[in-house]
């Protein structure tokens, strides 16, 4: 499903290499986790895949179901089925959460040549999904993420994911800023979306999120490359011994 080959990326402004040959393949229906120390390039990978400005791809490819992602605008990538759950969801004063979601859902449907969802159907769907994530009517009415707590912001990300039903989800440090209960709520939301041929790439510093979202494959990223891949046990190894041992072992 998501196939990344030999991806090299520079930061545009600093002319500095961040990704130095990433190879990764997430199959349909599988959950892959990427772990790694600060500055290893995990978040850069998520931004490059979703199309944020400021990065230059110097080599390599990234495709979703065989379609070149890197040539597309961010909105085209989203319509093609890619979703990034932001590490820091953006506050947008003046744009109601509900308006935002309805605009996004319908823009994607339009881009895919589907009919727009009626207001009634949309309302019914969002109420149902919001309930599972304990998002109340007030949060739906408020401007996007404005005045939301850290946990509310992350739950709002998962709500968007549930409404947009992407093929491939990237979760960028979704556990950051969450207490245990909030993390469990978010993980339940993600687990409810597992299967159905949907791929996940879960980026995290810590093993604890992976207790709740159990991955099929764990990758360790360091200095812009994936240096080791394995099963869920690899995450436990990191938790016990830190990254230094693995980095030393590979070097």
């Amino acid at each position: 499903m998501l196939e990344i080959k030999n991806l090299h990326v520079d930061l545009e402004e600093e002319d500095k290499a961040i990704l130095k040959g990433v190879d990764l393949c997430v199959e349909a229906g599988k959950v892959h986790a990427i772990m790694g120390p600060n500055g290893s390039g995990k978040s850069t990978l998520s931004y490059v895949l979703s199309g944020k400005d400021g990065y230059e791809v110097t080599a390599g490819t990234a495709t979703l179901d065989g379609v070149d992602l890197l040539e597309m605008e961010p909105e085209e990538r989203a319509a093609a089925g890619l979703f990034l759950a932001f590490q820091y969801p953006v506050e947008i004063p003046g744009v109601g959460n509900m308006t935002f979601l309805r605009t996004a859902v319908n823009a994607q449907r339009k881009a895919r040549g589907q009919e727009e969802m009626s207001a009634t159907d949309f309302l019914k769907l969002i109420r149902e999904k919001a309930k599972d994530l304990k998002i109340d009517a007030d949060m739906l009415k408020r401007p996007v993420n404005v005045g939301f707590s850290g946990g509310e912001k992350k739950r709002n990300e998962i709500l968007q994911m549930a409404m947009l039903e992407p093929k491939m989800c990237i979760l960028d440090e979704t556990d950051s800023g969450l207490d245990v209960d909030a993390m469990k709520l978010v993980a339940d939301g993600v687990n409810a979306l597992r299967g159905q041929g949907r791929g996940f790439l879960v980026i995290t510093h810590y093993q604890r999120l992976l207790d709740h979202i159990v991955p099929d494959v764990v990758h360790i990223m360091s200095d812009g490359r994936i240096i080791k891949s394995g099963g869920p046990e690899l995450a436990l190894e990191v938790e016990q011994n830190g990254y230094a041992d693995i980095i030393a072992e590979v070097a």
Binding site: F86, E91, F100, A104, A107, Q108, A111
Partner: peptide, 19 residues
């Protein structure tokens, strides 16, 4: 904010107008 909207599939022009 513009990127956030676009990353959710809202085209550039529409995202600008929303903002």
């Amino acid at each position: 904010a513009l990127f956030y909207l676009r990353a959710r599939g809202v085209p550039h022009g529409l995202a600008t107008d929303l903002l």
